[in-house]
Simulated assay, not measured.
Amino acid sequence: MSTGTRTGTRTKTGGTRGTGGKGGGRAGGILSGLAVALGSVLFLGGFVWGAILYQPYTVPTGSMTPTVDAGDRILAQRIDGSEVRRGDIVVFNDSLWGDVPMVKRVVAVGGDKVACCDKQGRLTVDGKPVDEPYLLDPKAPASPTGFSATVPKGNLFMMGDNRATSEDSRVRLTDSDDGSVPRSAVSARADAIAWPGGRAGMLQRTAAFTGLPGGGPSTPGPLKAVVTAVVGGAVLIFCGAAYGPLANLAGRRRTAR
């Protein structure tokens, strides 16, 4: 009988299998649980955060082509109309425009004189020409028909990017003197296309209005951070949940050898 202390059991090949595996397994299990817990917080928190800040909308017409097409599903950040700036693509609802949410681009704000077109066919705001690369046909005149309006304080002048077909503030000039929309009618600002998958992505902010007083469009909302939280949480949940089965499989293979 041996008088020494046994620290392990001898295997068939003569090696010694220590008792540290159980401790390592417990540590791995703890890390796995933490990963799942953290992932759940990020995943669910990201969804809640996104649901609070963003609202999905389906674009009803092709008036904003090529930026967004008819049938595109967009994600728009809930905002107050006071936050809107020139160049923003917004969702609004105004009784003069019908009873459904509309999606248009803001080209002028309260106090601006907006007109079209100058000798180069460009839109002008307070007499300053605006180059609009986002239009469906940037080489065509910024509007097939000429117009001029002064936007009242607290209002916004809306136009579509498909100027040949868009029914926007130009058409509403016949309904009122300015054709504009109150800021209070705006409920959200478009940040991204969510569907279809081939067009999904963040909407680019335009630099067309940066030379005007007050600058160009608003900065994007926190959508990228929301998506990062949701995707990161899903990855952590998957990796944490997969650790146990993978560790058991690896243990069985070691035992078989």
Rank of each mutant, 00 (worst) to 15 (best):
R73S: 09
G179L: 00
A192K: 05
F157E: 00
G221D: 06
Y134D: 04
R252Q: 15
S32H: 01
L212E: 00
R26H: 12
D72H: 02
R199K: 13
V91Q: 04
P133K: 00
D72Y: 02
V226S: 09
A76D: 05
P133H: 01
I30Y: 10
K119S: 15
K12N: 11
F92W: 07
D80K: 12
G25L: 15
R252E: 14
P213K: 11
M159D: 04
S180Q: 00
P220W: 10
D118I: 04
G28E: 06
G39W: 01
L223F: 15
T124F: 02
S180E: 00
L203A: 01
S148L: 06
P196V: 04
T210N: 14
G45K: 02
I193K: 04
V231I: 14
A229L: 12
Y54E: 06
D69F: 04
G211C: 06
A207V: 10
R199L: 07
K104F: 01
D118N: 15
G211A: 04
R6E: 08
L75T: 03
N93G: 13
D118K: 02
V231W: 10
A234V: 03
L75I: 07
G4W: 08
M158R: 00
A250C: 08
V103P: 00
D126E: 11
M159L: 13
C116R: 01
L96R: 15
V107P: 02
P220Y: 09
